[in-house]
Design a binder for these strands. Structure first.
Lengths: 177, 177
DNA sequence: AACTACATGTAAACTGTTACATGATTGG
DNA sequence: CCAATCATGTAACAGTTTACATGTAGTT
């Protein structure tokens, strides 16, 4: 049950409309939690219902009109409570690793190409994160506690992409030999 | 839609009952695809319905009695077709990284303990995988293609746990300083 | 007879994905 | 006025999780 907390975090960083949130989930927020606009609109409705957020006042609150939300004190309290909760890490689910294991049983022809394709995708993602790191976290901006935390999170995304790049590279060399 | 293919792979490696599959998903299969017994029983029903697997003949096929399944040719063909399909990697979803980002906004008190707890869990998982590697993949058993593939998959699990151990260690040192 | 482990399953709630619907605003 | 883009939503379905239900077999 993390999507509402991801949205609360995003809204605390900056009040936004549903579509703006969707864009932020496609970029910076997406490297630790992804969501589609349909999920986001549904969750915004629930959070408003629960009194955790509210729509900023506007004259014409109709369909097709931008609707911005901000977090209410109850929402901030809910998020603060959630941060201190403990939760075990979710086990991995990788369709690619599963394909490899299946290929060990039934054989696989085009798997090499698929590994190369994934290598390209992860390399591109890694490059993008490294650009974000250079732009948003230059050495002089890593002083305050919040900045250190945000940088740590990005670092997680970076290291994870590095893991994939390295493992895929290794896998391709193993399959070649 | 990978669970049925995970089950087909497992059943090809060794015909099993639902509970045996559950145990295998908790162990070796779990490091690339996890599932609960409820998911597995439902999927076994669907796969049987679809003619991809069948229950081995038995005198007393009632509730509470063990029921073993084996893969039919149609099931093997379905799996072979799936292996050659392409599929983009799913974006990461980590509640722990999200907690860190949220802590940058609302502050977090017990987060250090939670990071240490996760470090312990990932270290334990890593040790377990390394034992499996020593037991099941000694250097002389890495010759055949299927063995090389299975070892590659395990290697993925190992390297991923290593990533978490390293990142968590780094995070704890950052938070200390 | 009661307890425990084995074994299969059902039901409901929640989360995530895919396809579609509707209206508003802006530029050509 | 038309098309593209912005913006919010609905509906249906697929996948996952949690709680519970039921029956068998062996042990004390």
């Amino acid at each position: 049950m993390s999507l509402p907390h991801a949205i609360l975090t995003a809204l605390l960083e900056k009040p936004s409309s549903g579509l703006e949130l969707t864009r932020r989930f496609d970029k910076s927020i997406g490297y630790f939690w992804s969501a589609t606009h349909q999920q986001i609109y549904r969750e915004l409705g629930r959070l408003e219902q629960a009194g955790h957020i509210r729509a900023l006042p506007s004259e014409t609150p109709t369909r097709g009109q931008k609707k911005e939300y901000e977090v209410l004190p109850a929402g901030r309290a809910e998020l603060a409570g959630w941060v201190d909760r403990t939760e075990d890490p979710k086990p991995l689910r990788s369709a690619l690793l599963l394909r490899l294991r299946a290929a060990a049983v039934v054989g696989g022809v085009g798997l090499r190409d698929e590994l190369e394709r994934h290598l390209g995708l992860h390399q591109a993602q890694l490059d993008e994160y490294l650009e974000i790191e250079q732009r948003d976290f230059p050495p002089e901006r890593r002083d305050t506690e919040p900045d250190r935390l945000r940088h740590l999170v990005l670092r997680g995304g970076i290291d994870l992409e590095r893991f994939w790049v390295e493992w895929l590279t290794h896998a391709l060399s193993e399959l070649a030999g």
